[in-house]
Nucleic acid binder design. Structure first.
Lengths: 138, 138
DNA sequence: AATTTACTTTATAATTAGTCTAAAGTAGAA
DNA sequence: TTCTACTTTAGACTAATTATAAAGTAAATT
């Protein structure tokens, strides 16, 4: 993907293509595989791999904007910090509660048997399944 | 349940029955229905309904101790604060992302079709299913 | 092209959940 | 009763995140 593609992508969804947003797009979407990261991970990555010092507040802003536009997903864990995922397809996660490692579960590998009716007046937005794992104590 | 029962319960699981712990037991387990709460909720509740000013640190300590003993469950949400649940049976939750309201799902109402094998060397501790809901926009 | 406007970024301050600490208190054993 | 280990406490501290207000910039307007 070229820069111009990211510029179009941003513009098409109503986000101004600023230098920072384009760079973050590169970092997130010019990759072979999807990946998980925290806000801090991304801020550091921008500095190290992209020589781009972006204010933390901007990284938060951008990620929340990208999340709203569906470019990334936020992952719900019982953790103090929040994780983002560039894999936006419907899928769930293993979470290693000791190492804080997140691992994708292929969506075909897990499915709900019967989805209960939501409380009256409410409708389902999405479903998060987290399978907490731990290293076998040998 | 009488105070003495809580004292026994605590002692049996190796926790000293201190005044604070007994009071918290009363607040959590002398209820008709199970319920969800945050650490802050509980601290305020102790003060208001039980006239018992308990240091926040103690509330944290106590809840973590109770969690380790299986008296309460901690619920993983994509939220910044953590929720506890006096319903310790295996069950999952609706979560209203707008109001932060948590609603139990009867465990019989939802089930995984096939649980994927955990990554090599790891084993499953538990599974959290959160169904995010929102009020219908009418 | 210059001007204007609204949206963005930035550094920093503020907020918030949660943990740590060290001193004072207390349950239970001796 | 005394001692010891476990608890509680207030308050300092940490880390994640949000708010703020000024400076910068994209894009619309002239």
């Amino acid at each position: 993907m070229k820069n111009q593609d990211f510029i179009n992508k941003l513009r098409n969804s109503g986000l101004r293509p600023t230098k920072q947003r384009i760079k973050i797009c590169e970092a997130l979407f010019n990759t072979e595989k999807t990946f998980h990261f925290t806000v801090n991970d991304l801020a550091k990555m921008m500095q190290k791999n992209f020589n781009e010092k972006i204010s933390l507040a901007t990284v938060y802003n951008t990620l929340h904007a990208f999340k709203k536009k569906g470019y990334v997903k936020e992952i719900s864990l019982g953790n103090d910090k929040s994780y983002f995922d560039t894999n936006i397809s419907s899928h769930h996660h293993f979470f290693d509660t000791k190492t804080n490692e997140l691992i994708d579960i292929d969506s075909s590998k897990v499915e709900l048997k019967n989805i209960p009716n939501p409380p009256k007046g409410k409708s389902i937005k999405d479903i998060d399944i987290v399978i907490n794992v731990e290293n076998d104590s040998q």
